[in-house]
Design a protein around this nucleic acid. Structure first.
Lengths: 345, 345
DNA sequence: GTGCTTTGTGAGAGCGCTCTCATATTACGA
DNA sequence: TCGTAATATGAGAGCGCTCTCACAAAGCAC
């Protein structure tokens, strides 16, 4: 059973193909009488225009790609990515775009996937999650001359459009808050040090410390990888350095760190204060309300889509950037309540 | 700068468009001399055939869709979905397919997305995650006459191709193992009761109990929703019923349940034994190695892709089914070691 | 050398749309 | 009544491929 075509609908409605095309594309130049007649035929036959034919004629597909490089292993351990993906999907739905997902597992995948992405007539544009410094993927893709937006600042940002969160100032906020509460030995559990997010947060942490006249103690800085387990391991190591507060670069690592503390018999925030990053729902996994930096993850994804649409419609030059703000959400784990009460006394 | 076309390459190589098409599609009817010449031109120009034009001519797109209905909220709380998605992406990469992702957020989204999916010339086939009994999406999609495979048994499976895990026998295995270890008051934390997975696991649990001559105590069955928090809440409730073993329908819920136990001062497995389901990496989050049912999640996704390809190439009739086997992974949380030692004594 | 098959290449129709252009009809002011 | 503009429809080229068909050249058996 062959698929219906415009021509079939035209014949059934007793008009020319062009006219059917007009009602589908909501051209004003169709009489109401004809319009309703055609619409009824479309309705009853369940006709849907062929996407390939339309793409070929219009020179665009209304499909965008999301590329997750293999370095983003945390796709499976960090709720950040599912949330981001959801935001992107929302953005696509709102703009009648279809989202194609490219999970680049290994070098082989990369070789298979790249030609598919580069092929014109498949994608109108792409979103690429920035990964590690080896950003050959980004280079090759931008050479493919297709509108692209990087999610997260790339290492080499010149001429590239990207969306990012202001990680430096966010980290400053978090650290400064701990400082303002009187903590002196503030530790930082970082993400993988080969990503810009991690570097920015680390820089913010250091800046806040320095601005407050506090020294930077390298033994209070431990590298994690955004996973729960790495937070746990990092905390085990930090225990020796006896910090009185921790700024973790992700909520999930904060959860791991709290687990390590509990095992060591330390209470949060009574013994050690904790501030996380992300504001993803981890409430269930720990017994204290986590003070954290709220990232607008879903909005992040939607903004990325908006920017990509802008590039597609108005050209990719000049490169554009969107930097989103964050918010410090003060809950219990930083011990502010206790401190405030202490101050009252 | 207009994109290169076949015609351009043909002109540059001094041959006809047809010949270029032949070398791209690896037809044997091209002399080696011409083949290398054309390939070099393609190489140097960085030419990629236009996907839309090719789709239009061949009547297939090499794109498949993955539809996640709005009922699958657990996309963000259960690592099952990211892993499944990865498996599907692997399957696609292996078969040179592109994956399009449709996250159906709400009823509005559904109305926007459905026409896109139904539109021919966009997708060769679709994978649909089975959700709740309201499977109108599945109905409407299958009416769209496009090859589709359901992930997980749908409530109304007639005429529908699907891939599933043998949940009943898996649950029997898990429960029987606990029985064989001598536990008498075995509780079950289910997933949402409006899904076939949950129903199947519940049935397996009951079957094993009955077969062993044990009574079914409804107070030992508590509904969760596959999230950590729901496992925690369910366990809180179960505490009153004083079970000596728990079979949780997901590892994540097992983690939540163990957290509740720890708070209540109960040890796993010394006081209460625990068996989970999934075998996702939760090791980091609890202090006991979790005995669980291993689902081949990644293979699950790949099998779904394989089946869909089969339907696309060989027609959708008759409906086909793939039921994957599971494996009981015995670790520490079920207390078998202790029991075995006890038996020795 | 003749006739047949195999191999290599060109020609061109066709996939199902969109969109400009041409043309027919209607509306309306002077 | 005419002319102009606005409205409504048809005609058909063209988007960039694939694929069948036609045909030329080469290979081969007799």
């Amino acid at each position: 059973m062959a698929e219906l075509t415009l021509e079939d609908i035209a014949k059934l409605a007793g008009v020319h193909r062009s006219t059917v095309s007009r009602v589908i594309n909501e051209s004003p130049y169709v009489s109401t009488e004809v319009r309703t007649r055609v619409k009824k035929v479309i309705q009853t036959t369940g006709y849907h225009p062929n996407a390939a034919a339309r793409s070929l004629a219009t020179q665009h597909t209304s499909v965008i790609g999301l590329v997750l490089p293999r370095s983003v292993i945390s796709f499976f351990t960090d709720p950040f990515f599912p949330h981001l993906t959801q935001g992107i999907a929302f953005g696509c739905n709102n703009n009648n775009l279809t989202l194609s997902l490219f999970l680049v597992g290994n070098k082989e995948d990369e070789e298979k996937i790249l030609p598919r992405i580069s092929r014109h007539g498949l994608l109108d544009g792409i979103l690429i999650q920035s990964g590690k410094p080896d950003e050959s993927l980004i280079d090759r893709l931008s050479r493919a001359n297709i509108p692209s937006v990087i999610i997260g600042r790339p290492f080499n940002p010149e001429g590239i459009s990207y969306v990012d969160v202001d990680n430096v100032s966010a980290a400053v906020k978090a650290t400064r808050h701990l400082i303002s509460l009187g903590y002196q030995r503030i530790a930082h559990i970082t993400g993988n040090l080969d990503s810009t997010v991690t570097l920015d947060r680390l820089q913010g942490y250091k800046t806040a410390l320095l601005n407050a006249g506090l020294a930077i103690d390298e033994s209070l800085i431990v590298e994690g990888d955004f996973s729960e387990g790495s937070g746990y391991a990092a905390m085990k190591q930090l225990l020796l350095a006896r910090p009185d507060a921790i700024f973790a670069a992700s909520d999930i690592m904060a959860v791991g760190a709290i687990r390590a503390m509990r095992e060591a018999g330390l209470r949060v925030p009574e013994d050690v204060a904790m501030v996380g990053f992300d504001d993803v729902p981890v409430a269930g996994q720990i017994n204290v309300q986590l003070t954290t930096i709220k990232q607008p993850i879903t909005r992040f994804g939607m903004k990325a889509v908006d920017l990509l649409i802008d590039l597609i419609e108005n050209g990719t030059k000049p490169a554009r950037r969107i930097i989103l703000d964050t918010e410090l959400i003060i809950r219990d784990s930083c011990g502010s309540k206790r401190m405030v009460e202490n101050q009252k006394v």
